[in-house]
Design a protein around this nucleic acid. Structure first.
Lengths: 106, 106
DNA sequence: TACATACGCAATCAAATGGTTGCACAAAAT
DNA sequence: ATTTTGTGCAACCATTTGATTGCGTATGTA
């Protein structure tokens, strides 16, 4: 089962997990302490993140440490970058001009 | 009704719409020609995008032109940027510090 | 050995999602 | 004035989602 990257980051809990494990690997139990929902619910989120390859795992004894996979996060950055030119200053001015010529109605 | 930015881009059709209208405003009918699903299905996607403020509209006669709102897309870029230090080659202590100080965003 | 801990997996359920069809209405065309 | 076109909205439906509960298994501990 592979999960789409954009689907994986659509959930607020999953995004919070990503921030938490970005700098330090964490176990499901440790992660679950940061949320109101149960460990199993958090584990299901972790599974989605793992299937999307945003997260990698490393087993240590009976604990499993999950960690962010920056390479996959980079894919998101690359997708966004295709729009980057649109919010640069010179294009903002063009937007203003278009708005003046075609004012929004309704 | 306001839709979350990350939820808005979770759907492949909606992402395709964003790419199509990034450089040129388009009407729902024109957009629907690019997809297999019905006009109404596309219109529902447009509604989600509009509610998330990723898309703005401009009425012209009986046609409604939809266009990308770069400022909102920039928010996505800013969220991703908190992880940027993790995949950059230069990974000095300053990057670490900035990442740690940055408040958690969802 | 016996028990506790950390975790994944399966079943279940309410809510959300994405799609379709039908309809209403305003603008344009005839 | 009547018809066609462009669009949004509501109702409906199958599928997916996020959460909970219960269970099985492997690892650590008394």
């Amino acid at each position: 089962m592979e999960t789409d990257l954009f689907h994986a980051i659509a959930d607020p809990t999953r995004r919070a997990i990503l921030v938490l494990i970005a700098t330090q690997a964490m176990t499901p139990n440790a992660l679950a302490e940061h949320f109101d929902s149960s460990r199993q619910a958090v584990s299901k989120h972790i599974k989605v993140l793992t299937e999307s390859q945003l997260v990698t795992q490393a087993k240590q004894g009976r604990e499993i440490y999950y960690q962010l996979n920056p390479k996959k996060m980079r894919e998101l950055d690359q997708w966004v970058s295709q729009f980057k030119a649109l919010w640069e200053d010179r294009f903002d001015q063009l937007d203003q001009l278009l708005l003046t010529l075609k004012p929004n109605q309704q």
